[in-house]
């Protein structure tokens, strides 16, 4: 689904991604785990076509994301870590706008909105303008936007950041359903519990590249510890790839 090879990105003279390489297979959920400044957000932004790369390649469902970002962007849904909504638009108007960008118009768009609204329990918010929405409500609307065109891949940057427990549970349920329906997920997170629950495979990122990867158990075994958090702390400072 995603194939990242030798990705490089520098801001002015400071290299942030140093030959980042990994894959996300079909129907797989992959977590990108890393300390602040490891390059997770930059990596996701380059993959999503928001930033140009200095080298390497990114292929999403066979589309070259670096040279033809629009083609690749049609293949996935994405949600950033700090997303703003249009406070003067209702949820229905917001989703209609983003649906149009994915070729959903009229009745087809209405059906897609109804489906995603039901899935996320957004019925009571549908005709309300976004001004005054809670963080959890905002997350749900953003996730609805990402899921609207039924993409085969979701890219999420720290999706649980700033959410309360009920909102996290909603997110977890929706992503779990999405996986069961055969979708792939690439997400970044700081929350170990989230990573353990959602990820089939974990990529530990440090200093702009993947330093370790595997399941939670494989990583703990490699680091000779009993918890994923300990494994992460140990492995993030190592130059070992499993």
């Amino acid at each position: 689904m995603i194939e990242v090879k030798g990705l490089e990105k520098s801001f002015k003279t400071k290299p942030v991604l140093k030959g980042l390489s990994f894959t996300v297979n079909d129907h797989e959920s992959v977590a990108l785990l890393g300390a602040n400044g490891a390059g997770k957000t930059t990596a996701l932004r380059v993959i999503c076509g928001l930033l140009n790369a200095n080298g390497g390649s990114v292929s999403i469902a066979g589309e070259d994301s670096l040279n033809h970002p629009e083609r690749a962007q049609a293949k996935f849904g994405a949600m950033g870590d700090r997303e703003g909504l249009y406070e003067r638009l209702s949820v229905r108007e917001y989703l209609t706008y983003f649906g149009a960008m994915h070729g959903l118009f009229g009745k087809q768009c209405g059906e897609a909105i109804d489906s995603v609204v039901e899935q996320l329990g957004l019925q009571s918010l549908l005709n309300r303008r976004a001004a005054g929405f809670s963080q959890g409500e905002r997350m749900k609307v953003s996730l609805a936007r990402a899921l609207l065109h039924k993409p085969k891949l979701l890219i999420l940057d720290e999706p649980t950041r700033g959410l309360d427990v009920p909102s996290v549970r909603v997110l977890r349920r929706v992503l779990s359903d999405y996986r069961q329906q055969g979708g792939s997920i690439l997400f970044s997170s700081h929350v170990m519990q989230e990573v353990e629950n959602l990820a089939d495979r974990i990529l530990i990122m440090a200093d702009g590249k993947i330093v370790a990867e595997g399941t939670s158990e494989e990583l703990q075994r490699l680091a000779k510890v009993d918890h994923l958090e300990d494994a992460f702390v140990t492995l993030a400072g190592m130059e070992v790839v499993l």
């Binding site: 928001l50 962007q73 994405a78 950033g80 997303e83 909504l85």
Partner: peptide
């Protein structure tokens, strides 16, 4: 400023 530009630029629209 409202952080709504980022999701917009991740859509397949020129």
């Amino acid at each position: 400023e409202r952080l709504s530009l980022e999701p917009l630029l991740m859509q397949p629209m020129s």
